[in-house]
């Protein structure tokens, strides 16, 4: 059995989750505290991937990043970046596609904290940054964990966007979900089943761990 698609899937999921974690905290923090009129617009944009068919997103990215077109050509020519049919392109597409799965739990967590926590920290002379890092984030650990795991699992399960923008290139863009599709098309059911079973159990265990941790089962066990 070829392990490469699985390895690629988890590499993609790890990189995507790491990038998402870093960019989602400022977005979620802004969304949870702003009174700006732009807020509903940004919230809508962040949530769009939840309802939009992945092929729509993949299609537009394919068009935008194609070296045949202005923007893709510019990227290719000036920065030497080629985003279609490459791992970099997959990462970018996955980040956009899984954005709501990271931003929404963090935003919900931050909004659930009493505003006085933040205000108390400000009256003690602490900056917004310090307040976020030392007070707000440590108190929404379950939300952070949920965001990380959902983004990871969602990226593992991605199919449409990856197929559109990455194609099916072994070792570069052929992730497990596409490998399964490939094997089924070739009537190679045993191989498809192997990939599927592995994905099934890994995602089951990851999600189970989240529910156990956030439900406090381990803490109860330790006591």
């Amino acid at each position: 059995m070829d392990w490469q698609p699985l390895a690629l899937t988890f590499k993609l999921a790890l990189v995507t989750t790491a990038i998402l974690f870093v960019i989602s905290i400022p977005i979620a923090s802004w969304l949870s505290s702003t009174k700006s009129k732009l807020r509903p617009v940004l919230e809508t944009l962040v949530s769009m991937p939840l309802v939009l068919p992945p092929t729509v997103l993949g299609f537009y990215m394919l068009v935008a990043f194609s070296p045949e077109n202005a923007f893709g050509g510019w990227l290719n020519e000036w920065l030497g970046i080629k985003l279609i049919f490459s791992f970099g392109g997959l990462v970018l597409a996955s980040v956009i596609y899984s954005l709501p799965f990271m931003v929404q739990p963090i935003q919900a967590g931050l909004s659930s904290l009493p505003p006085t926590l933040k205000e108390a920290s400000y009256t003690m002379g602490k900056s917004k940054m310090k307040t976020l890092l030392k007070i707000l984030l440590p108190n929404i650990r379950p939300s952070l964990l949920t965001g990380i795991v959902l983004s990871f699992a969602h990226t593992v399960g991605e199919f449409g966007v990856v197929l559109m923008i990455g194609g099916n290139m072994p070792g570069r863009t052929k992730v497990a979900s596409i490998a399964i599709y490939d094997e089924v098309e070739a009537l190679n059911y045993t191989a498809a089943n192997n990939y599927s079973l592995i994905l099934f159990f890994i995602t089951f265990i990851i999600l189970l761990l989240v529910y156990l941790i956030n439900g406090g089962y381990f803490k109860r066990f330790a006591q």
Partner: peptide, 16 residues
């Protein structure tokens, strides 16, 4: 608020 020298005790205490 960071620049004002005020000690504030909130109604809900706001302990971290």
């Amino acid at each position: 608020p960071q620049q004002r020298k005020v000690g504030y005790v909130f109604q809900d205490y706001a302990l971290f």
